[in-house]
Design a protein around this nucleic acid. Structure first.
Length: 668
DNA sequence: ATCACGAGGATTTTT
DNA sequence: TCCTCGTGAT
């Protein structure tokens, strides 16, 4: 156990009972988790099959797997579970679907699908258009995260509005059950309930998971807390690692108080604090500490560093957002050409995605390569969702939501009128849409022509379902050909280039399915593929492929867990950071944590920027400096615009033009 | 069915 | 201001 400090070592070695590791930013928490897994296997005498480590993102799980893999020989990690909460939940549901009121081959709906379902329901409800589908979905999600079922939601409702929402929740749940489908929240809630209600399942899972580790524990919600509690059982052999100061997902249902709650639920809980920071200069760390001291704390911790003071953090007060972007790019060019930094060492962090625009423009103008993270994810694209819907319907004929999405995609001349009649018929008979298409009784409501069209569609689905049993990926490829999806994309795209790009997404997805099939996750059925794919994001992989020496642009949320030698924290203004709605809703503390996360991303240099005025929704608004700037120690900050018109800057600009020229030559 | 226009909304978004 | 979604006219 080399290369660990005493606190880290203690955290790795302590296996006598429940353990909470409060790991400050940059204190080496992932290192502790991976080392601990190795320790449990090597010295703890626990078989890898009985160890489970949970993360929130696929990326974190993948990285952890890699790091454990490089510590221990492959054979010795066999059976080790390192997965996201949701993947574990999916696995549990798949093993005992009937215990969660599901049949095998259930569908998994993502947030978009769920919203579409609610929208559809609202359309058929009197006065439904007064409600926002997104708001309803959010409310339902919150209920589920708090382990509240529709009946409880109804009885807890304090006013008509809430009661109405609870009603939608009940309808929504009924639809999901009818479709043999679950949403993301059910992947946690379902298993938690399952364990609560079935002692023998509890025994099975507690026997299987003898040691549980959880990363980013501050981000767990109520349902996740419950699931963890039931998984570890009375033996409580677990290590959770988290940092209350980096809790930035409360708005999404995360409950940072779960950290403190552990102390009440497990009186013997051991708490270890990791306070040595290996990332930032002492000055940067000092700023972070001072800022976060303004938040109330259950656990007092103070990060320290062996690093020297380093460069003083700076504040650039700019005229407007255009000027702000210019200044930052000018600084970046200075870092690159005068200080020898790589573009890849630099990040621009902001509160909201819309802030990226002026920076993109300025970076492009100066020919600085950049990566923008965020935007529409791979699985949110219409063409991918279409193919996923085919996959879902083929696997689970009861998935009416999938049916509705693709029954007329590509065009089969099955219009809204036909579907309306079909839906009415299906509802009366209490059968699913796909089954209804083949019924003789439909003849009374629909013309021969329409029935033929519907029938052709069911034939297509059942034919592929049959072939899908033996060759899932080949079947999906064949399907794309049969329906001539490429042609449909061409018809609907504004240009050939767009159509090509969309089709490329389809081939990517198919290739990915093929790789999945061959790899470790082999022998997947169509149903398993569909659910698993919904939990993954292929885009992650593409990001890695492109790599390269580029400046990173991302939101503060997206930056959590990352570090950069040079960080620009832009838009340090009231109503931006802290965000306006957070001021109104008085959730300033989370905004402060957001600023804290931003500051602690920086290793060597940190530059804040703010503007005097900013265009908001088309109007110029004067901006006020963020209260967080005022909370920082004045003597540790350098307020200046010095670089603006110095000879240095002119030199950097000159170099940027040279760079631009060189870039053009390289392209040709 | 397809386009064009207008209203409304415009944080963050691990799964 | 600008983008997205839904509607209404062709």
């Amino acid at each position: 156990m080399t290369g660990l400090n005493p606190r880290q070592l203690e955290a790795v070695h302590y296996t006598a009972g429940p353990l909470l590791v409060l790991a400050g930013a940059g204190s080496g928490k992932t290192r502790v988790i991976t080392r601990k897994i190795a320790h449990l296997i090597d010295q703890g005498g626990i078989s890898p099959r009985h160890i489970c480590a949970l993360t929130f993102t696929n990326k974190a799980a993948r990285e952890m797997r890699e790091r454990v893999g490089s510590r221990i020989k492959g054979a010795e990690t066999r059976g080790l579970t390192i997965s996201t909460f949701h993947t574990l939940g999916l696995d549990m549901l798949r093993r005992h679907p009937e215990r969660a009121g599901l049949r095998p081959r259930f569908s998994l709906l993502d947030a978009q699908d769920a919203e579409a379902l609610i929208k559809e329901h609202l359309r058929h409800t009197k006065g439904g258009d007064a409600f926002s589908p997104a708001a309803i979905q959010h409310r339902i999600s919150r209920w589920k995260n708090d382990l509240v079922d529709p009946a409880q939601a109804e009885s807890l409702a304090e006013d008509d509005f809430e009661a109405r929402l609870a009603g939608f929740y009940a309808d929504y749940e009924r639809s999901l059950r009818a479709y043999n489908a679950v949403d993301f929240d059910d992947l946690i809630l379902g298993p938690a309930r399952m364990l609560a209600e079935h002692p023998e399942l509890r025994e099975t899972w507690q026997g299987r998971i003898r040691y549980l580790l959880v990363d980013e524990y501050q981000d767990t919600n109520g349902a996740q807390y419950d699931l963890v509690r039931r998984l570890v059982g009375p033996r409580a052999a677990f290590t959770v690692v988290g940092d209350d100061d980096q809790s930035i997902y409360a708005w999404r249902g995360a409950r940072p108080e779960n950290l403190a709650r552990l102390q009440t639920d497990y009186p013997h809980l051991k708490v270890i604090m990791l306070e040595q920071n290996y990332r930032s200069s002492a000055t940067i760390l000092g700023l972070a500490n001072t800022l976060i001291a303004n938040n109330p704390h259950v656990f007092e911790k103070r990060l320290w560093s062996e690093h020297g003071p380093g460069e003083p953090p700076r504040v650039l007060h700019c005229k407007d957002e255009g000027h702000e972007a210019e200044q930052v790019v000018s600084e970046i060019l200075h870092l690159k050409f005068a200080e020898g930094a790589d573009f890849g060492d630099i990040a621009i962090l902001y509160r909201g995605n819309h802030q990226a625009r002026p920076f993109e423009k300025a970076l492009r103008e100066h020919n600085v390569p950049y990566v923008l993270s965020g935007g529409t994810s791979f699985f949110a694209r219409a063409e991918v969702k279409d193919l996923m819907a085919y996959l879902r319907l083929i696997a689970n004929p009861q998935d009416d939501a999938a049916f509705l999405r693709i029954v007329n995609t590509p065009r089969r001349e099955i219009g809204p009128t036909t579907l309306e009649k079909l839906a009415n018929y299906a509802r009366e008979r209490e059968i699913h849409l796909l089954d209804a298409c083949g019924e003789i009784g439909l003849g009374e409501h629909l013309s021969e022509r329409q029935r033929e069209r519907l029938h052709a569609f069911t034939a297509l689905v059942s034919e592929h379902a049959r072939r899908g049993e033996t060759d899932p990926v080949g079947t999906m490829r064949a399907l794309v050909e049969t329906i001539d999806y490429a042609a449909w994309l061409r018809e609907n795209a504004s240009s050939q280039a767009v159509a090509d790009r969309r089709y490329a997404n389809i081939t990517d997805l198919l290739d990915w399915l093929g790789a999945l099939k061959k790899g470790e996750l082999q022998e997947k059925t169509l149903a398993e593929m569909a659910t698993l794919l919904t939990l993954m994001d292929v885009m992650e992989r593409q990001d890695e492929d492109e790599g390269g020496d580029r400046v990173s642009l991302m939101t503060l949320h997206a930056a959590k867990g990352l570090e950069f030698p040079h960080v620009f924290l832009v838009g340090m203004e009231e109503e931006l950071l802290p965000h306006r709605t957070s001021i109104e809703e008085e959730t300033i503390e989370e905004e402060r944590r957001l600023a804290y996360v931003g500051i602690t991303r920086a290793q060597r240099t940190l530059t804040f920027t703010l503007t005097r005025r900013r265009k908001r929704y088309g109007e110029w608004v004067t901006s006020e400096p963020s209260r967080f700037l005022a909370e920082l120690p004045k003597d540790q900050l350098r307020w200046d615009n010095a670089r603006d018109e110095t000879p240095e800057n002119r030199k950097a600009r000159g170099l940027s033009h040279l760079h631009a020229l060189k870039g053009m030559l390289d392209v040709d």
